[in-house]
Amino acid sequence: MSSNGFDRSAAWALLTEWTQGESLRKHALGVETCVVAYGNAEADRLGLEESDPERGELLDLYATTALLHDFDYEKHPSLEEHPFVGVRELERLGWPESLRRAILGHATYSGVPRDTYLAKVLFACDELSGFLTACALVKPSKAIADVEPANVRKKLKDKAFARGVNRQDVIQGAEELGVDLDAHIAFCLAAMQRRADLLGL
């Protein structure tokens, strides 16, 4: 748990207070899954042990940022309001600036640069996690376990599939993160497959 009380359970409570729709809640969980996987990789790079409080705080920051990135979208879906309304509420409640800036940065139209690793990870995982969910739901089993990276890459080229997903954001996200797109797809897919039960996939 984060020492300041802004932990995952607090983020989930805020998300569910503002968001009634199951699909948006599941989207938040999908993004969280991918973002936290990158957070764990970052913690490993920093040499933070499992028992290190710093690791726990870092992962809480990654989880809460992902869970809250769209928490205002159901009530305020317009480009003029999302994510600005939500970020103002987060500021009022005292949530960390690094979280708020990353959330602003995931909206390409906000004018806020993605100048932290967290901000880049959130942007890179947002559209992709939704696309991976779509790839799972068209399988006869509707199981993400049956999705393969090569199939995802093929469907990305099919403009008629999951039209709502911004392909350019998926590509740009991997570029900004400095990872190969195929590796990024495989990494996020594996993360979501490990949490399939939680994601309902």
Rank of each mutant, 00 (worst) to 15 (best):
155 K>C: 08
78 S>V: 08
156 L>P: 11
153 R>Y: 04
108 T>F: 09
134 A>T: 09
149 P>I: 12
116 T>V: 05
118 L>Q: 13
173 G>Y: 11
108 T>C: 08
159 K>F: 09
135 C>I: 04
129 S>C: 15
149 P>Y: 10
121 V>L: 05
101 R>F: 00
110 S>M: 13
152 V>W: 05
170 V>A: 04
150 A>Y: 10
113 P>F: 04
172 Q>E: 14
144 I>A: 00
161 F>T: 08
120 K>T: 05
143 A>R: 03
166 N>Q: 07
113 P>I: 00
93 L>W: 00
120 K>F: 00
137 L>R: 09
112 V>I: 15
119 A>N: 01
137 L>C: 07
77 P>G: 14
132 L>Y: 04
105 G>C: 07
163 R>K: 13
110 S>E: 10
76 H>V: 06
103 I>A: 03
114 R>H: 12
128 L>G: 12
176 E>N: 08
163 R>M: 09
174 A>V: 01
159 K>N: 15
124 A>S: 13
169 D>A: 06
110 S>A: 13
113 P>N: 00
97 E>R: 15
129 S>G: 13
101 R>A: 03
138 V>A: 02
110 S>C: 11
139 K>Q: 06
81 E>I: 09
74 E>H: 08
124 A>M: 01
116 T>A: 07
151 N>M: 13
165 V>W: 01
97 E>T: 10
99 L>V: 05
140 P>N: 00
109 Y>S: 08
86 G>L: 02
143 A>V: 09
126 D>H: 00
164 G>D: 02
159 K>S: 14
136 A>L: 08
87 V>I: 04
174 A>W: 00
114 R>F: 02
164 G>L: 02
174 A>R: 00
140 P>M: 03
139 K>S: 07
157 K>C: 14
78 S>Q: 08
118 L>D: 11
126 D>R: 01
151 N>V: 00
